[in-house]
Design a binder for these strands. Structure first.
Ligand code: MG
Length: 941
DNA sequence: GCCCTAGTAAACATGT
DNA sequence: CACATGTTTACTAGGG
């Protein structure tokens, strides 16, 4: 079938066949040199102990290596007994090489496996062999280990048989357009499948069988081969073949693996031995690496391997040759000491897993060979931004989306998916949205900036401190020199909120030059100018923001200069030579500073409407009510139990500044905790956000069950409470958000499997709380008292984001001194005036664009990789003199720039950096605040 | 050397 | 029962 068709496709005449012409290999064949290598020692690393073959098996083998065997030939020494034959035509393959070891070696042949062709046998002594059609003049075909014939239906490189370390087995990759038949089943181009002992393979007109040295084989040696003399059994540790560097070989076997992986080494090693034969080298190496990376041996496998090894050992006590397993292997192995017997039995275990296809480097478009230089969180975020529907994306969609956006993931092994899942779970930026069926939909959390912000803030703050110090110093001088009349500059660091990093004691040291002053002045002006288009905060806040931005800018420039090794006064230079760049930096800094400051202050950036309640809040408020039949959302049932919301809500309002929050807080508070009047939970008034989490007590929030989502609709069953909740449809609207939220927070009570007893009972009733607790007990170690931060997955999507427009709040605090300059103050005032106008939208748009721009830049720069080196994009280009790496800076603020939404998080406390795992600890104010952040509004809808 | 973030793998739990 | 999906853990590597 296929074959025929195939033919055409293939190339035309180009090919000449000479069949045989064995390439240079012959030389390689020179078995001699390399061969001798005592494989044993060496190899190890790579070879999986389990080695495909029964390593242990043949005793002899080991030594044999030396022999002729191909050792070097690593590849394949084909031997044939009979002769050289040829398969069809020419099977030359390496004829030579193979040949050489031919006949006699039989006994000693070591190989991982053998390919039983009609006319000859090819021993697989390397980790990978290439099969295809040898074409004269086509160097690429020189790499072939086996020439399958001249049929054009056979691609020059048609198939690859290689050992997959991850799966610990040999696999066949069909890289020929016309596919192949494996055990009579057609396998199309591009697929990779595992090879089992005796797997029949047909490529073009050529048939052969893949044979592993099974135990049976081993013992019986010759049995199998009845016809052929080969005894696979002999294969012993083949590892030798390649890896070993011939010479030294071993170098710590154990380590070797890793080390060997290094390209260089690998190459080196290969060169030696078999240069001729395989050329696989590069690919091979990479593949090895890939495979290795891709899959680590799993326990079972490891166990099996171990067992096998053990068995082997037992069998042939002597063969120490067994290569020492790789580190990983070792580790694993120890975990599972399995009796040899057991191990042996296991093997039969099916190896079902159809591995995804394993791509070889050459099969992957160059541009996709490199892993994108983005963090998983970024990848996911981008994916969601690009393809997320209102509700979100399922895991599978995310996988696809990422592959779509970053094709690299189409070609690499699957480990990344685990990382993606891990990220989704762990990263607060991603929230779950209920959906029918199995999993959840994932969406970006509005507040997803929080996370990043935190990080960035930290970083930035650190950087800023320095800058501030400098700034202050500068100011001082400035003031002094400039006749600014009264300057009282104290430097207080301040910030209403805590943390702001330490206040830098001003160093008086600075000696500012005139230039510095000018520069500073320039920056200030620019800042003011840039600020005009933005939302205005109260004066104090604005001042802080500007100060912060200024500090950031200075820090950035200095840092960049430092990185670039630039001396002198970079700021001045940059201003002179590339003012636009400075502006960029200022803009970014402004954005970052805005976020930072507002966040610290707890100012909700959310659209100004502070006082007036936006609808959103209202919704939220409503939500709390537990049973609302009306609520369509599936999650409904949730309501019943978790009362937590309420308390929590209350909490939320930060004690501190009476800031904007009013709306939200008040609202929230209102709704009484209807549902379960849990005992404890009384949400009395607002508690300061103190850490005291809501006690778990009756209504306390408990840590949600880890597993399982709420049985979406299903739940009802148990819970009588909610009458009709109909499952599916849930409107994203308010209800949904809330519901979900609860949902997630407390995962469903109902069905929980494990908890048979108590829980069940509880479940029946409305009060789910019990259930939860019960459930929890099961899984979570310590019954958490509070919910994790996560729970808060609010589904709410934000709507508005961005840069706050109008001026919001007010702070009571006295202004900081930071920018005292009278001039500056004046400018500020002007600004203030100007601002009230509503340019908001426009501004917003602008901001967004800026943000996007920034992001793009960042992205580009990231991709570029060289931070310092240059920044492409005119945008960021800096003069030659200064090589700023704006990347870093921008990168830091990227998030902020972007969406900006704002979270209203309140951080009263400083947050500790570490997040303790304990549940208790976890609930910090932060978390709470976040969780209950009111500001959310739903997206569409 | 410590602390943290990220990336990886994998064990487990659970739903399909 | 195999797989998909999520949640956690444990480790490792790198960067301040
Ligand atoms: Mg998450």
């Amino acid at each position: 079938m296929s074959i025929d068709n195939i033919a055409n496709t293939m190339t035309t005449a180009t090919e000449v066949n000479n069949a045989i012409a064995p390439p240079p290999p012959s030389s390689s064949t020179t078995t001699p040199a390399p061969a001798p290598v005592a494989p044993a020692p060496v190899a190890p690393a790579q070879v999986p102990s389990e080695a495909p073959l029964s390593t242990s098996i043949t005793p002899t083998p080991i030594t044999t290596n030396n022999k002729p065997v191909s050792k070097n030939t690593n590849i394949s020494s084909t031997i044939t007994d009979e002769s050289p034959l040829s398969l069809l035509h020419p099977m030359s393959t390496h004829g030579p090489s193979t040949m050489h070891s031919p006949n006699e070696p039989t006994d000693h042949i070591q190989a991982y496996a053998m390919l039983d062709f009609e006319n000859f046998i090819f021993y697989v002594q390397t980790m990978q062999i290439l099969l295809g059609r040898l074409v004269e003049g086509d160097k690429s075909t020189e790499a072939l280990d086996i020439h399958l014939g001249q049929q054009k239906a056979i691609s020059r490189r048609h198939a690859k048989i290689f050992y997959n370390f991850g799966n610990q087995r040999f696999e066949l990759s069909v890289i020929g357009r016309n596919g192949a038949f494996v055990d009579d089943l057609f396998v199309e181009y591009g697929l990779t499948l595992p090879l089992k002992d005796k797997t029949r393979i047909q490529i073009g007109e050529t048939h052969f069988k893949f044979i592993l040295p099974t135990e049976e084989t081993i013992p019986s040696n010759k049995d199998l081969k009845d016809k052929k003399q080969i005894n696979p059994s002999d294969a012993v540790n083949l590892k030798t073949s390649l890896y070993n560097k011939a010479p030294s070989g071993n170098s710590t076997a154990a380590n070797s693996r890793e080390s060997s992986q290094t390209p260089q080494e690998a190459k080196a090693s290969k060169l030696e031995p078999s240069k001729t034969m395989l050329k696989v080298d590069d690919d091979f190496i990479s593949e090895l690496r890939a495979n290795a990376e891709a899959s680590v041996v799993k326990r079972e496998e490891a166990a099996a391997a171990a067992a096998a090894a053990a068995a082997a050992a037992a069998a042939s006590s002597a063969t120490s040759s067994t290569t020492p397993p790789i580190n990983k292997d070792i580790k694993l192995t120890k975990q599972l000491p399995i009796s040899a017997a057991a191990a042996i039995e296991e093997p039969p275990k099916k190896q079902p897993r159809q591995t995804k296809k394993v791509y070889k480097p050459e099969e992957i478009p160059e541009e996709y060979r490199k892993k994108p230089n983005f963090a998983y969180s970024t990848l996911i975020t981008e994916c969601l931004k690009a393809k997320c529907t209102e509700r979100g994306m399922s895991l599978a969609e995310i996988y696809k989306g990422i592959q779509d956006l970053y094709p690299y993931f189409k070609y690499c092994s699957e480990g990344w998916q685990s990382s993606v899942r891990h990220n989704l779970s762990l990263n607060k930026s991603f929230k779950k949205v209920a959906k029918e069926g199995k999993g959840w939909l994932w969406a970006l959390d509005n507040e997803y900036f929080e996370e990043k912000e935190k990080l960035k803030l930290k970083q930035i703050e650190a950087a800023n401190l320095k800058a501030k110090q400098q700034l202050e110093a500068i100011k001082q001088q400035n003031q002094i020199q400039l006749q600014n009349q009264n300057n009282q500059n104290h430097i207080q660091t301040t910030a209403s909120t805590s943390t702001s990093t330490s206040t830098p004691p001003p160093d008086s040291n600075s000696k500012l030059s005139v230039d510095a002053k000018k520069a500073l002045s320039y920056l200030q002006q620019e800042l003011i100018r840039l600020t005009k288009d933005r939302k205005m905060y109260d004066k104090e806040t604005t001042t802080q923001i500007l100060t912060q931005a200024l500090a950031m800018t200075i820090a950035q420039v200095n840092q960049a200069a430092k990185n670039a090794g630039i001396k002198g006064s970079p700021l001045v230079t940059l201003i002179e030579k590339n003012p636009s760049h400075i502006t960029k930096i200022l803009t970014a800094a402004l954005n970052a500073a805005t976020l930072q400051i507002t966040k610290k202050k707890g100012i909700s950036l959310t659209p100004a409407p502070a006082p007036s309640q936006s609808p959103a809040p209202a919704q939220v408020a409503t939500i709390p009510q537990p049973q609302q039949p009306s609520q369509p959302s599936p999650n409904i049932y949730q309501f019943s139990k978790p009362q937590p919301l309420e308390p929590s809500h209350q909490i939320k309002p930060l004690a501190t500044p009476p800031i904007v929050s009013p709306s939200s807080s008040s609202i929230l508070a209102q709704p009484a905790p209807a549902p379960t009047p849990a005992p404890t939970p009384t949400p009395s008034t607002i508690q300061p956000i103190s850490q005291s989490p809501p006690t778990t007590g009756g209504g306390g929030v408990k840590k949600p069950q880890y597993y399982g989502k709420p049985p979406s609709m299903a739940i009802q069953s148990n819970q009588t409470q909610i009458p009709n909740v109909r499952p599916i449809p849930y409107s994203p609207t308010t209800a949904s958000s809330t519901v979900q939220r609860q949902f997630q927070q407390f995962s469903q009570p109902t069905p929980i499997p494990y908890t048979s007893n108590a829980s069940t009972a509880a479940s029946t009733t409305a009060s789910a709380s019990d259930d939860v607790s019960g459930v929890i007990s099961r899984f979570s170690k310590p019954p958490p008292k509070i919910s994790n931060g996560d729970q808060a997955v609010l589904q709410v999507t934000p709507q508005i984001p961005q840069p706050p427009l109008t001026i919001t709040t007010i702070t009571k605090k006295p202004l900081n001194d930071e920018f005292n300059d009278s001039e500056f103050n004046m400018m500020l005032e002007d600004l203030e005036k100007e601002h009230n106008s509503e340019l908001q939208k426009k501004k917003m748009q602008q901001l967004e664009q800026e943000q996007k721009e920034s992001n793009e830049i960042i992205a580009k720069s990231n991709s570029v990789e060289d931070n310092n080196k240059h920044i492409d994009e005119g945008v960021v280009v800096v003069n030659n003199d200064l090589n700023l790496n704006v990347d870093d800076f921008l990168a830091q603020h990227a998030n902020q720039l972007d969406t900006t939404t704002t979270t209203t998080t309140i951080n009263n406390n400083d947050e500790s950096k570490k997040r303790p795992r304990d549940e208790e600890v976890e609930l910090n104010n932060d978390e709470f605040n976040q969780d209950f952040e009111i500001s959310k509004i739903q997206k569409l809808e």
